[in-house]
Amino acid sequence: MVVKHFRRLKNRLASAIRKVFKKKKEIKIGLYGPVNSGKTTLANRICVDWLGEELGKVTSIPHETREIQMKEKVTIKDNGRSLTFNLVDTPGIATKIDFEDFLKFGMKRKEAKERAKEATRGVIESIKWLDKMDMVLVVLDSTRSPINQVNITILGNLDARNIPLLIVSNKVDLKSSSTSRVRTAFPGYDVIGISAKTGAMVNELYKMVLKKI
């Protein structure tokens, strides 16, 4: 409990300082998370809602997003408040990438090896871009166990850099989804359950983003 309040206080303070010193800078909001958690689906949802066009391609094959993708000047509004930012969709972070995993999706060996190589570069890019973020939405697949090293490393690095964050527990439209499991795993953080695919609770997410930054 104490840790939670301390973290919130620290993030608010960091956010206030950032507002004072970086007022004229373009705000970057990043979508971070493990592979196949729905980052690009959420990026597309946000872009379609506010710009009327998608950002990237979505498939069920892991590491579909292998390069940083950015949509500039996205403006979200709620109750007279608005925020304009650059939305950054990042490749999923992983500790291992086996080209043989791609063969299961019908890829040829050469194509699978190339995809694996691009995916490793994507992970490195994602990590390097952490320092450029003003806020991050950590997108987790709520049907999977939230306690894994990738999630812990992402959250730890954002905390260490004092970057405000929201945990987005995605895929609540699926039966095996459990946002409460995510909340229990990460008690010190603000968590919101949404479905980027159906749009459920996405308006609440916009409100939380406006409050946070």
């Binding site: 992970v123 990590i127 730890g156 260490a160």
Partner: peptide, 12 residues
Amino acid sequence: PKEEADLIEETM
């Protein structure tokens, strides 16, 4: 966390 991120980066 930074050591973990460095390790992942070097691994990749």
